[in-house]
Design a protein around this nucleic acid. Structure first.
Lengths: 354, 354
DNA sequence: CTGAAAGCGCTTACAG
DNA sequence: CTGAAAGCGCTTACAG
């Protein structure tokens, strides 16, 4: 292991010796170069450069009881929150913090345990749980225990304000249905996301409530799992002649599956069936037909999450989100008015050739 | 900051006091419960449980000079290596290591600097750079410097063996062209990936070499950037009557763009134009037409990367990859023999309605 | 099998 | 402006 060229990193003492000062002075230089008299500063500067010295961050943390590191926990899955992360990293770096991403696996219980270990390991100053991870009830346990460091759950602006109550974080599903209704659609299907995720549950609930509120009809909810296959299966499971003309999918991938499933039954999209997704994934922009969807302001989510976490760490009041995060509907080729004969998805089937 | 309910985490000394033993004994208990005599062990066990004690990992690391943490560095981008990460995490956990994911931003220079800082911070025992990140020449600098900890670059099996020489990591491009050629295709187009990535460069090089080797024709290489738009633009840039019948895209997203671009010119896929992607993204499976592509064995990549890193850390010889990683071609609806009249992508254009 | 002592590499009062 | 001393919470020889 100790090979010839392998230098051990130099310590603050070695720098001090080379500079001819005490290690206290070197430490001071590290904290604030201007606290040294110029002549001393030059000597230390030289020694640091010569030895290419970097402070041992573990030792520093041990002494200061701070790490300047923030953990973002998430579950690796089909929907990796890359854009939230990028924005969160940038925000954290600006505040002088490093980000570490920790993926936690297993059930809610195992995940909560892992988060608690992390919180109490002394290795990070705070934890941001992206909303894509579901620690559910376990997060309440975490709250009541004292973990020593703040844990913040990233949520959408709407969820945070609780303004929309039951609609929290899925209000756009209501807008989608209203829009489709205004185009003339009356019979809907929802391909739900994994119900172990809050986002999946909320979208399903808002779907049902909006159908009810507007006096529309639902041919049912297909309990999917965010996959393309669930979209295919949802359509395949529909009885002939059900008369559905619009599908609200919980995510873009499921929506693409719905379109494929529709094609397999000879239904045209959007001729016979309108399909709405959620995510604004890049694929949907180029798909045939391109996908109507919900563009999520992931950057704000990541940014605001870090801001709230930093506020808690520093003991400041929770900040107002800089900009109201906008989850806006994007209308593309997969939605249109329903066919004149509302039963084109009925028993007689195919109204489009290939 | 110090709120009423906020307990400070307990220390090994407090456990020792409660158990009526020395903190040395508690530490010993933490390392190996069987090294204590049963009666003592019970007392310590009780104290640990009562105080819900967790060792401060920062202090432990400081003392042992090991962290049992591995960093995986990557650049956040359109192709997030979720599956490699999941496999890498699992492998690391089995070996008793925690994984931390660090995203490094900026140019190659800035990224290399960030990696060096990390390596010398004492916060991790080793670093795995997923091949999706390009530290290029900077990685050589990193090698020559002594960073104190091992850094391993994750590469595909082929890259590692250097068996294929120039074809490293992109051999499947050759297979794709051979297959398309066997179907009767003669004129090709390559939509290249970002040339600042090794994978982008290799695929382009193998494309050109294979075209040459098989005596085929290329109407050119469109220098793309992994996006769907680059696929659209590549097709739009083609002169009328160029006679191309097959497109080899550097990734699935570009391939989807190509299909959309073809449709915009009235070309049918695969009727007039065959399109091959690379990635086996889930979208391509459900797209219309579904996408022929290359399935990458990302799990093996992640697993093998960690195995090699652990071997270096422990000073063992580099392990043979458990299974030869197989990047296999998947043939779906987007490829077929060329049209009988080979100039269907020519000036007269549209051979398919809608 | 157990305890007293040293020390990992830093930072931060406290003196001067 | 600078230095000597204490200490962050652990682990690990070294004695007993």
């Amino acid at each position: 292991m100790s090979e010839p060229g392998e230098k051990r990193p130099s310590t603050i003492h070695e720098v001090a010796r080379l500079a001819g000062v005490s290690h206290t002075t070197v430490s001071r230089y590290l904290q604030d170069k201007d606290s040294l008299k110029p002549q001393t500063r030059v000597k230390v500067e030289f020694a640091v450069k010569t030895l290419d010295y970097r402070p041992n961050l573990v030792a520093r943390s041990m002494r200061t009881r701070r790490t300047n590191r923030l953990a973002i926990v998430l579950a690796t899955g089909p929907h990796f929150p890359g854009r939230q992360l990028a924005a969160a990293s940038e925000t954290a770096h600006q505040a002088g913090y490093q980000i570490e991403i920790v993926s936690v696996e297993g059930g809610p219980k195992a995940r909560a345990a892992r988060i608690e270990d992390l919180a109490r390991s002394g290795q990070v100053d705070g934890i941001l749980a992206l909303s894509s991870i579901d620690i559910g009830a376990a997060s309440i346990d975490l709250k009541t225990k004292s973990l020593g460091i703040p844990i913040v759950r990233s949520e959408s602006y709407d969820e945070r304000l609780h303004v929309l109550g039951e609609l929290a974080g899925a209000a756009e599903i209501g807008e989608i249905i209203e829009h489709l209704s205004s185009l003339g659609h009356r019979r809907f299907l929802h391909v739900a996301g994994d119900q172990s995720f809050a986002s999946g549950r909320n979208r399903k609930r808002v779907y049902l409530e909006t159908i009810e509120r507007l006096g529309l009809e639902s041919v049912g909810v297909y309990d999917g799992d965010w996959t393309g296959q669930s979209g295919v299966d949802a359509i395949a499971s529909l009885p002939d002649g059900c008369g559905v003309t619009a599908v609200v999918a919980a995510c873009d991938l499921a929506a693409v599956g719905v379109i494929r499933g529709a094609r397999a039954r000879g239904w045209s999209v959007p001729g016979d069936l309108s399909v709405f997704g959620w995510d604004d994934d890049e694929y949907g922009r180029y798909a045939l037909p391109s996908l109507s969807t919900v563009a999520v302001d992931r950057e704000s989510q990541g940014r605001d999450g870090i801001h709230r976490l930093l506020a808690e760490i520093l003991g400041k009041p929770a900040p107002e989100p800089s900009v109201r995060s906008v989850n806006r509907l994007i209308h593309r080729e997969s939605t249109a008015p329903p066919p004149l004969s509302a039963d084109s998805t009925g028993a007689d089937g195919r109204s489009e050739v290939q």
